[in-house]
């Protein structure tokens, strides 16, 4: 397995935000994660990306234990991420935002050249905004910048946190195309998303998180149709 998170747990006091969650993806896999708001999905990403330290569990990347590594070191090792609420560097241009990620995030892989950064921007429809300060971008552009920045670090595993919300059908289609393309290049994708049809167009496995615990994982259609999931989302009594 490329990325293997085993028995991850994070508590704040008595509150278990993530409770014994294990997930694994191989190169080129695409795993979708759904769950109600506050279920601990973003915290799970923070644990994998290293922004938050887990209380329990281990994370392995290509067999190497990275649990003790900082977020920066994990990024260099190959874990790229996008933030649910976009965090662009507003004082830098869109192009410079990618340069930072390329220069610092690539680790042992060769850093992307400026032209590669521009190619990513073009691919995500941000090319014409390259020299604009990122602070001037609108929300949807910021979301795409999150994805672009994640890609510029040359990730082996890419964590996407709700990047499809608020898109028009056409924009959503092009986003799906872009993510499929990334996947084809051998990048493993873990995608948290509420826009289920977008998710289903890309992922081949679906995991459901509720109250911090993983309650189901498997074929997207089957998992989504399962009684447990219907219960969580629609309140159908068990």
């Amino acid at each position: 397995m490329l990325l293997e998170a085993t028995g991850l747990g994070k508590s704040y006091g008595a509150l278990k935000v993530v409770d014994d969650v294990s997930i694994a993806v191989d190169a080129g896999d695409a795993l979708g994660i759904i769950g109600p708001n506050g279920a601990g999905k973003s915290t799970l990403f923070n644990l994998i990306a290293g922004s938050v330290r887990p209380n329990r569990g281990t994370i392995r990347l290509a067999g190497r234990d990275i649990t003790a590594l900082s977020a920066a070191a994990r990024c260099r090792a190959g874990i790229g991420r996008s933030f649910q609420i976009p965090r662009p560097w507003v004082g830098l241009t869109v192009y410079e935002n990618l340069l930072v990620a390329a220069e610092f995030g690539a680790g042992e892989a060769a850093a992307m050249a400026g032209s590669d950064c521009l190619a990513i921007l073009d691919r995500l429809g941000l090319g014409h905004l390259a020299d604009v300060p990122a602070g001037r971008l609108r929300l949807l552009e910021r979301k795409r910048l999150e994805l672009a920045r994640g890609l510029a670090t040359r990730p082996r595993v890419l964590l996407l946190d709700e990047i499809a919300g608020g898109l028009t059908d056409l924009e959503c289609e092009s986003l799906i195309e872009a993510i499929r393309g990334i996947r084809k290049e051998g990048v493993a994708i873990i995608w948290i998303e509420h826009v289920v049809h977008a998710l289903f167009a890309v992922v081949d496995r679906l995991a459901v998180i509720s109250f911090g615990a993983k309650i189901a994982e498997g074929d997207p259609q089957e998992v989504f149709a399962s009684r447990q999931v219907q219960e969580i989302y629609l309140g159908v009594p068990a």
Binding site: S70, C75, V100, A101, F104, R149, T153
Partner: peptide, 8 residues
């Protein structure tokens, strides 16, 4: 975000 993009 800087830390997450590999800036130590």
């Amino acid at each position: 975000a800087a830390e997450s993009a590999g800036v130590v």
